[in-house]
């Protein structure tokens, strides 16, 4: 790399480059984010086997289902004010109980399972369908590109909320309908990003070189283009997952997310806001967890985007 020195000089125009220190700092944040996501995944995977949350509390629907249990929490369960449960940050249940006496940590973990399931499935659908559309449109161009662009523009211009309300109202409130509704929003967005990235890669001369060698189009797409679009796709998958977690919360507020007794983060927050004054932790705990999760997803996605940027990997 003989031109290192000259390249360094050029950076003077683009602002100071990352020095050793700022890189290290950045890595720390990256690994913290990864750590948070790992903890979250472990909790969600453990599910009912989670040793931090006793089985009895996670299923307790103290008022409606098992009234006998209410006495168990007599220190704080007061049917007169229709509020049951412990306050937050007392021994025994770090994040307190909600109005039905359920342990907030437990339901947050439970809700996380469905939220994460929705987010991951939607992201997977978005990446596969949207990614395929974007790749084909960006590489083959021509009429395929025109068709895909029309699809993208039409779906993106239909008001998102109306579309979702329509689907959920017509087809009913189930996990799969929520996934369908959100996927319809994620696919065109991801298709557009992948298409832009594909256009950039397809323009590079190694793709031309493969054509000159007589490599078939499909082979070029998978061997030359896809590996270079992949990093962008993966990092956007992280960002998309975060966006969908938030979007699900929005749907829950509108009463369009999954039906009871299923819970998601959005539903916990939405259900808990009525008692926000008396028991803010019911809303705050899942909100904070949602916040850190989305932040972590964004940071990891961002970091990967920078790290594997094709332009950055040149000389």
């Amino acid at each position: 790399m003989s031109n290192v020195a000259d390249n360094l000089a050029y950076t003077s125009k683009a602002g100071p480059p990352d020095t050793v220190d700022s890189k290290r700092e950045w890595n720390l944040i990256f690994w913290l984010s990864v750590g948070w996501l790992v903890i979250l995944v472990v909790f969600i995977l453990l599910g009912s086997a989670n040793p931090l949350v006793p089985e009895i509390e996670r299923n307790a629907d103290l008022i409606n289902a098992q009234p006998a249990l209410t006495n168990f929490w007599k220190d704080s369960c007061d049917p007169e004010v229709e509020r049951c449960g412990r306050d937050a940050f007392v021994v025994g249940g770090l994040f307190g109980n909600d109005d039905r006496g359920r342990d907030v940590l437990a339901i947050t973990v439970d809700g996380g399972r469905i939220s994460a399931f929705i987010a991951l499935v939607v992201t997977a659908i978005g990446i596969f369908v949207g990614g395929a559309l974007g790749l084909l449109a960006g590489y083959l161009k021509g009429w395929i590109d025109v068709v895909v662009q029309i699809i993208i523009n039409v779906t993106l211009s239909v008001p998102a909320l109306l579309l979702v309300i329509f689907i959920v109202v017509v087809r009913g409130r189930s996990i799969w309908n929520v996934i369908l509704a959100v996927s319809l929003l994620a696919i065109p967005a991801l298709a557009r990003i992948v298409r832009a990235s594909t256009l950039q890669v397809a323009d590079r001369e190694f793709v031309k070189a493969a054509e000159v060698l007589g490599v078939k189009k499909g082979s070029i797409l998978f061997r030359e283009v896809l590996p270079n679009v992949m990093p962008t796709m993966i990092s956007f998958a992280f960002l998309t997952t975060g966006i969908i977690l938030v979007a699900e919360g929005g749907l829950a507020f509108l009463g369009l997310s999954v039906e009871s007794p299923s819970i998601t983060w959005g539903r916990i927050i939405s259900d808990g806001r009525a008692d926000f004054r008396d028991s803010p932790w019911v809303v705050l705990t899942p909100s904070m967890i949602l916040f850190f999760t989305v932040l972590s997803l964004n940071l990891v996605g961002d970091h990967l985007l920078k790290r594997y940027d094709v332009r950055g990997s040149g000389l």
């Binding site: 001369e205 190694f206 031309k208 054509e211 000159v212 060698l213 007589g214 270079n228 094709v310 040149g314």
Partner: peptide, 23 residues
């Protein structure tokens, strides 16, 4: 045309851009 390609090759200007960075 693809079958004739092996006989007609090309070298590009930008040595970096003409090689796939991931292979």
């Amino acid at each position: 045309l693809r079958k004739v390609r092996p006989d007609l090759q090309m070298i590009f200007q930008d040595p970096i851009s003409s090689l796939n960075p991931r292979r």
